[in-house]
């Protein structure tokens, strides 16, 4: 049985209130008196429990205190909020002032999708073949022009002028639905049947809008090309042999090929410098050969 004096002594020891001599005597007793040692362990655990309970209470109280995150300063938060608000206002302003006819754009886009395929093909043929279809033109002239349509029309008009085509200016062009893509050389191109079904003259028109520049002394690019707008750069020994650039237009898309050393190479309209890769599709090679002969 633990006495009141023993408990008081243990408390004094734990609170460091004993003198050195008393402390030494206490520690000797701890080693020799088992019941005293048990009482000490118990009292130590209880006092520690009381202290821990208060620490937990204080920490729980502090956890309730609202404090800002230490990793993001209040200035940074203000800056982020400011930028976000500006971005939202700018986006809204852009659509309100730059695209006031956004509804028209949407409806126009929907109509474009709903236009029957046969009619579009007729239109496409009309553009490249320079024959007029008044019914379709009239239908589109009654519609309010959208900015997107105007931009598309301007691009086509520029290309038509440069190619000295006979297409009349101001004519509304139906957006492209199907475009001939000679780069689809895997033999499963969806445009392939269209080429076979239609006379080639209706699909293609040829012109020379690309201004070619040869870069023979580029260490990194030995047989490459780059198209930027109407500028074609050829990297490699093109000054040694004759080369020929073939351009075709289907609606507003230009497809270009390079004929060099009895081989055709696709010239995709990407702004990055790319390696010249030979055309492998026999059908396409045959058509390109035919064009060159008819030139």
């Amino acid at each position: 049985m633990t006495t009141e004096q023993d408990i008081s002594l243990i408390e004094d020891y734990l609170a460091n209130r004993l003198s050195d001599a008393e402390k030494e005597a206490f520690e000797v007793r701890l080693k020799t008196d088992k019941s005293f040692s048990e009482a000490y362990s118990f009292q130590q655990a209880v006092i520690k429990g009381i202290q821990n309970a208060r620490i937990a209470e204080l920490k729980a109280m502090l956890n309730q205190v609202p404090v800002g995150s230490s990793s993001i300063s209040s200035t940074a938060i203000k800056a982020i909020v400011g930028v976000s608000i500006t971005a939202v206002i700018s986006t809204i302003s852009y659509f309100v002032f730059v695209y006031p006819n956004s509804e028209e754009v949407k409806s126009s886009a929907i109509e474009e999708v709903l236009v029957p395929k046969a009619e579009n093909q007729t239109e496409a043929t009309e553009v490249v073949g320079a024959t007029e279809n008044k019914n379709i033109s009239t239908q589109h002239e009654t519609e309010p022009p959208s900015i997107q349509q105007n931009i598309a029309e301007n691009k086509i008009e520029k290309r038509k002028k440069a190619a000295n085509n006979e297409i009349k200016e101001g004519k509304v062009v139906e957006p492209k639905i199907e475009i001939f893509d000679p780069l689809a050389e895997d033999g499963q191109a969806t445009e392939e049947p269209m080429l076979e079904d239609k006379p080639e003259e209706d699909v293609f028109t040829k012109s020379n809008t690309l201004k070619t520049e040869v870069q023979p002394k580029d260490r990194r690019h030995s047989f490459h090309y780059q198209i930027e707008g109407d500028q074609l750069k050829l990297y490699g020994p093109f000054e040694k042999e004759l080369y020929e650039v073939l351009e075709f237009f289907s609606n507003d898309k230009r497809t270009a090929f390079l004929y060099y050393n009895r081989t055709y190479y696709s010239l995709a309209a990407n702004s990055a410098i790319a390696e010249l890769k030979p055309v492998m599709d026999p059908k396409l090679i045959q058509k390109l050969e035919q064009y060159r002969k008819n030139q």
């Binding site: 609170a15 655990a45 429990g49 009381i50 620490i55």
Partner: peptide, 28 residues
Amino acid sequence: EREKIIAACINELGETCKKVLTYYYFDE
């Protein structure tokens, strides 16, 4: 487990006892 036991027992004490013991053993 021991700390849990003691904490549970402290909570079973009345508010006055809890305060007195805290003042004595924690706040000294």
